[in-house]
Design a protein around this nucleic acid. Structure first.
Length: 1174
RNA sequence: GCUCGGGUGGUGGAAUUGGUAGACACGUUGGACUUAAAAUCCAAUGGACAAUGCGUCCGUACGGGUUCAAGUCCCGUCCCGAGUACCA
């Protein structure tokens, strides 16, 4: 019998299906005893696309399948399910184009997927299959959504709680003391106020606390896809799917308050057995930064806004003039001022006072900022200005200050009485140290910035706002208005992409306004610049040019001052960004302090002033949860007076309605708006036609659907108890299986799916529905299997280099005539021409631009493509797109690299059709038959478009599933990306044939050459047992370390050795079959049944490694001289060090290396090595 | 820029705590079997020198260092890949 893999594999696949071999046992259902220890192995479930599987897809499934089967042999009750993430864009796009219902497309695709998967012999428990688009499944997705709606996040207890508990708190004590995750614009209210609110007002407020909430947010709108996208669905400023542009737009959307979980999501990463790089991605995404929120009061406003202001110095919208005046006043105080200052300075009264200080547009004589107390000393002339003084006092008091007025005589005559009055006033004023979270203390408003370096606050020389910052319009002076508006308009036009591509250019405009430095009280000019992002922090920065490179560049560019506040730092060329060990200088009370001390001190002082507080900022934003699509979970939501209401859980699922068109409606509503039956009857609890909406008992339903990650965020729990109609998972099942022990999937989900499902798991745990905090204990990212593509090198670039000036130009270059390049659409050149080193020279330099941002990329291309190293200053380019086009592999002549130009030119691609092709000599190809054009090969993603997809079905047909499984593992480490090369598969296939032969007798040609099964019951030889146990040891270690490639090698070595030993002893071949069963299950089953077993091999006990078979009495010692191995010697292992040394040195070969001189030193490591130093 | 991985034959890749570098396989070359091819089997295969063997030298991106001994540890440099990016 020969190894007929097709027959064997079909037979066992049928057997497994018929016998439900891989059905995992659940607690509660019979047989409930002896379940064994639970082990949960999960693959990321696939989206069933129309293209079917290629050989890259099963890689992770094979690895997890091997592990699952291994664990079964080890006696575990293994849960190894599979399902489909079956809601998604492609089916819907297809529906838009063809009108075919996405459910039909999806069903067909799933069928195809299942067929393909079945052929590979996975040990999935298909009785537990889930599909996210199945109403019985998404019923529970909707249910979880409702739970989120009914919850809020309590920072005090650091967990999610029921919204009813929050209502209780509001009713009994208002919201002041509640530390909850909520919207920014929540206003304080008391219990009385709360109780007096109408039901609608209450709902509005509660919405700001719910873990899923409806709010107008700035979203990423993708016009081409007609939907919004989450941050993780955008790659490089364009949509992940389709690569369409994305714009910012304000829309009312459902959001998930994932930001409330930021700290837990970050902290708990440490508990997980994930790769460091993956954890790092999540850390990056969460983006925690610790620092301070600081407020810079705004000093000046343009005329016209608050014109009525009067003071001793009116009309001053130029704060620096005021400040100059203040400085002047400080330098020439009146006698009374001098006396008073002597009593106030240095915190003599316990509080810090400042003199001649600017408040709004007024210079006051003295002020204690932390107590909001202003002292004025009036001289004689003020008698004439009583009215103006009153006015001035009023305005200052409106800013929250108390004003005390003294006359010169009072101060000079009885300073003690004056001081007493001041002390009384001070004690009567509240201490302003409250965090500046709510309205800023000065009524005029301030600019709030987030900084991680409050210690550098004395280095602030200007501020920069994002162009979109809401204050920009308010503070811009009339003189600057035109310029500022032009700048805002220009930067609004620039797309996200342009902004990213052009990182280096420095742009910005002065607003004309000034802010006040919280400590020095000096004016700080306010600029706008698009290096500041509206979306991060507060959209404003305090610029510290000496410590931040971007601020530094900005300052240099606009000739703004740069103040050095670091001891011994050279900032003449660039900013100094050192932290640890840095000593702050030139910074008032921070001078001489080290970074850490200064940081704390700065925050403390800011808090005292009421102008700042320590704050932790996260980059993680709340996730937008609405999609304007058809093919997704409907929200269980209807609207009463515009307020969202949940459909109660017992009426779920709310199933997707039928629509005629899958496009948005004419009025721009989502596709569900096309449905005529999409209203909710609250009396009968069912969906009714839209026409019946009366806003009394029948209300409109939500038109958006949920995003793709909704269903995938919790599916792991559904597998535990997939048919439960009472709950998404029973407590019993969940507590038995806990969470996923091993999760395998692609790294592209690092910041999407993996973060969201951690979030939902934590939430469900908080609310008591789960016993675990994290969904995936161990996670492995399988690398991608790549295909090959063919590339004609594009030469549509104009390059002028100063190569002529360089002495060492390559001899072997080829000149391509400039006019050839100029006159064509595209020029491609043969890969072998490129290899020679090509140089393009154009004589006329017309319209050349110099793009800094492209330069680096270009230099790389020149270097990689032409092997030329160019001086940085020598490259000038005219950009016209560098990407080389990919050509479908079908255009290659056979297996060669030669492009079939005739076929290519008759293809549909305009560019390729009209292009000029240069052969290896650099001349244009006119005769496609005689001249060759060589395409370059590149390793990249498999894609139907490029014809480089390898189908696993074909491999199974030609070599068998066992070969495919082992070969995919053999390719290299699981986590590494690697190119597919079908040629190499023969090695693995031959191995399986050899394995088969071990169990069969040598063919006898006279009997027709048929092998027959033949295993002897004779005891195995010592060597064979040694081989077996060596293999058990290594394979077990490898499997535990997920080093599947090396275990395949180990099997090969084992079979090679056993073949050489002519081993056919049952004692060895039976354990070997079990060892290999996880990898090549079909052949193992076949051999197992031939060995006489009627039961499947899948639960056969894993062989136990026994050391005694490996014990050696001798060791082949490598003998090295000065560390270089020269020869080996077979010596007994129990030989002592001294004896070894003696024996080795006595050896003839050793003598010849020593050439009679005694060795300097002899190192003997028993059992390892002997090294002789000469 | 930052973070995390890497850099070993013609190729994919092995190499426990530092201890015989290149396991295993592909490819290539030669041979056997065949009318022939395929399949199968055997042998060789890091490079250079020597070539009959004995051998010698050089070799894990590059330059240093530690050590009896370095692919492995330390310092510096270069390059590649992935993620992320005016993150204040």
């Amino acid at each position: 019998m020969n190894y007929n893999f097709n027959e064997i594999e079909a037979k066992w696949q049928k057997y497994w299906a018929d016998n439900q071999t891989f059905k995992a046992k659940n607690p509660g259902s019979p047989p409930s005893e002896g379940l064994g220890e639970a082990y949960y192995v999960l693959d990321m479930f696939p989206y069933p696309s129309g293209a079917g599987l290629h050989v890259g897809h099963p890689l992770g499934y094979i690895a997890s399948d091997i592990y699952a089967r291994y664990k079964r042999h080890k006696g575990f009750n293994v849960l190894h399910p599979q399902g489909y993430d079956s809601f998604g864009l492609p089916a819907e796009q297809y529906a838009i184009q063809t009108g075919q219902h996405p459910a039909v497309t999806t069903e067909n695709n799933i069928k195809r997927y299942r067929e393909q998967l079945d052929k590979i012999g996975f040990s999935f428990d298909w009785s537990r299959e889930v599909r996210t688009s199945d109403p019985e499944y998404y019923k529970w997705t909707q249910w979880i959504f409702i739970q989120l709606f009914e919850s809020w996040y309590d920072y005090e207890q650091d967990k999610s709680r029921a919204i009813s508990e929050l209502e209780e708190i509001f009713a009994s004590e208002g919201n002041k003391r509640v530390k909850a995750a909520c919207d920014d614009d929540v206003e304080d209210f008391t219990a009385e106020e709360w109780n007096a609110f109408s039901s609608e007002e209450k709902q509005k407020i509660l919405l700001k606390y719910r873990l899923t909430y409806l709010a107008e947010t700035e979203v990423n709108w993708c016009p081409q896809l007609g939907t919004v996208l989450a941050n993780d669905e955008i790659v490089n400023g364009v949509s992940e799917r389709g690569g369409y542009p994305v714009v910012r737009k304000k829309m009312t959307q459902w959001s998930m308050r994932i930001s409330a979980f930021a700290e837990r999501l970050l902290q708990d990463l440490d508990k997980l057995d994930w790769t460091e790089s993956l954890k790092e991605s999540q850390r990056n995404w969460i983006g925690k930064s610790v620092g301070a929120m600081v407020e810079f009061p705004i000093l000046s406003f343009p005329e016209g806004e608050e014109k009525a202001r009067r003071g001793y110095m009116t009309g001053g919208n130029n704060a620096h003039l005021l400040l100059e005046k203040a400085r002047e006043n400080r330098n020439s105080p009146t006698d009374a001022e001098k006396i008073l200052w002597n009593h106030l300075r240095n915190k003599s009264l316990g509080y810090k006072f400042r003199q001649q200080h600017l408040i709004d547009d007024f210079i006051v004589d003295f002020v204690c900022l932390s107590k909001r107390l202003v002292l004025e000393v009036d001289g004689g002339i003020h008698d004439l200005q009583v009215k103006e003084d009153e006015n001035r006092t009023k305005i200052i008091e409106s800013k929250g200050f108390k004003v005390l007025r003294f006359r010169n005589e009072e101060v000079i005559g009885d300073i003690d009485a004056v001081l007493e009055k001041i002390e009384t006033a001070l004690s009567g004023q509240p201490h302003v140290s409250e965090k500046v979270q709510k309205a800023p203390p000065s009524g005029a408003g301030g600019i709030r910035v987030f900084t991680t370096r409050p210690d550098t606050i004395f280095g602030v020389t200007f501020m920069t706002l994002a162009p979109e910052h809401e204050l920009v319009k308010k503070i811009t002076t009339p003189e600057q208005k035109e310029e500022v508006e032009a700048y805002i308009a220009a930067s609004a036009k620039r797309s996200e992409r342009e902004r990213m591509a052009d990182v280096k250019s420095i742009t910005g405009v002065f607003t004309g306004a000034y802010a006040e430095h919280p400590f020095t009280k000096e004016p700080v000019p306010i600029w706008i610049g698009d290096y500041v992002l509206a979306g991060y922090g507060t959209g404003a920065v305090m610029a510290v040019p000496c410590g931040d490179q971007r601020d530094y560049d900005f300052a240099k560019h606009f000739y703004l001052p740069i103040k050095n506040i670091f001891e011994n730092a050279d900032i003449s060329e660039e900013a100094f960004s050192g932290k640890e060990g840095t000593v702050i200088a030139n910074s008032d009370f921070l001078s001489g302090l080290k970074y850490k001390e200064a940081l704390q001190k700065a925050i403390l002082e800011l808090e005292k002033l009421g102008l700042g507080y320590g704050k932790t900022n996260y980059r993680l934003r709340d996730a937008v949860f609405s999609r304007q699509r058809y093919w997704g979970e409907p929200f269980p939501v209807y609207y009463v007076n515009g307020m969202p209401q949940m459909i109660s859980a017992e009426h779920l699922p709310l199933t997707l309605p039928e629509v005629e068109k899958y496009l948005p409606t004419e009025t721009g509503e989502p596709p569900l708006g096309n449905s005529t039956e999409w209203a909710w009857d609250t009396e009968n609890n069912k969906v009714v036609p839209n026409a019946e909406i009366d806003e009394k008992s029948i209300f409109p339903l939500e038109l958006n659907t949920m995003p793709g990650w909704a269903g995938s965020s919790w599916y792991l729990f559904r597998y535990m108890d997939p048919h439960n109609e009472e709950a998404f998972v029973s407590k019993e099942a969940q507590q038995y299986w806990e969470s996923v022990d091993l999760y395998i999937g692609g790294s592209e989900h690092a910041t999407g799916h993996l973060l969201y499902s951690r979030f939902w798991t934590k939430f469900l745990k908080d609310r008591g529905y789960l016993s675990v905090e994290e969904p995936f204990k161990k996670l492995i990212n399988q690398g991608m299997i790549l295909g090959q593509s063919a590339i004609p090198y594009r030469a549509k670039i104009t390059l002028v280099s100063n190569l002529d000036n360089q002495k060492d130009t390559p001899d072997d270059y080829y000149e391509v005539k400039a006019d050839l390049i100029e006159n064509s659409n595209s020029v491609f050149f043969s890969a072998d021409l490129r290899a020679k080193g090509v140089r393009f020279i154009q004589e006329k330099i017309n319209g050349l631009s110099y793009f800094t941002s492209m330069k680096k990329e270009f230099e790389k291309i020149i270097k990689n493509s032409f092997g030329l190293k160019l001086e940085k200053s020598s490259v000038y380019i005219q950009y016209s797109g560098f990407s080389d086009p990919r050509v479908n592999l079908q255009f290659l002549d056979g297996l060669s690299d030669n492009l079939n130009l005739a076929a290519l030119k008759s293809s549909g691609d305009e560019e390729l059709k009209n292009a000029i092709y240069l052969d290896s000599e650099g001349s244009e190809i006119t005769d496609c038959d005689k001249q060759n054009f060589v395409a370059a090969r590149e390793v990249e993603k498999m894609s139907k478009r490029w014809g480089n997809v390898v189908n696993p079905d074909d491999i199974c047909e030609d070599y068998g599933a066992d070969t495919l499984r082992m070969y995919e593992m053999f390719l290299g480490p699981l986590e590494q990306a690697k190119p597919w090369n079908t040629a190499g598969i023969t090695g693995v296939h031959n191995f399986l044939k050899k394995l088969w032969k071990l169990y069969h007798s040598t063919p006898n040609p006279s009997l027709g050459g048929e092998n027959s099964f033949s295993v002897s019951d004779e005891p195995a030889s010592k060597d064979s047992l040694k081989t077996l146990h060596k293999t058990i040891k290594k394979v077990t270690e490898d499997i535990e370390n997920f080093s599947f490639n090396t275990s395949v090698s180990t099997f090969m070595i084992c079979v090679n050795e056993l073949s050489a030993q002519n081993c056919n002893s049952r004692e060895v071949l039976e354990p070997l079959a079990i060892l290999i069963a996880p990898y090549a299950p079909h052949i193992a089953e076949e051999l197992w049944s031939k060995l006489g077993y009627s039961e499947s091999i899948v639960t056969a006990e894993y062989p136990v490694y026994e050391e005694k078979f490996l014990v050696e009495s001798t060791k082949n010692y490598p003998i090295s001289f000065n560390g270089k191995m020269r020869f080996t010697m077979e010596l007994p292992l129990d030989m002592s060090k001294e004896e070894i040394e003696k024996t080795v040195l006595a050896d003839e070969r050793a003598k010849s290396y020593l050439s009679d001189a005694p060795p300097k030193k002899v190192i003997v490591v028993p059992g390892k090595i002997v090294n002789i130093v000469i």
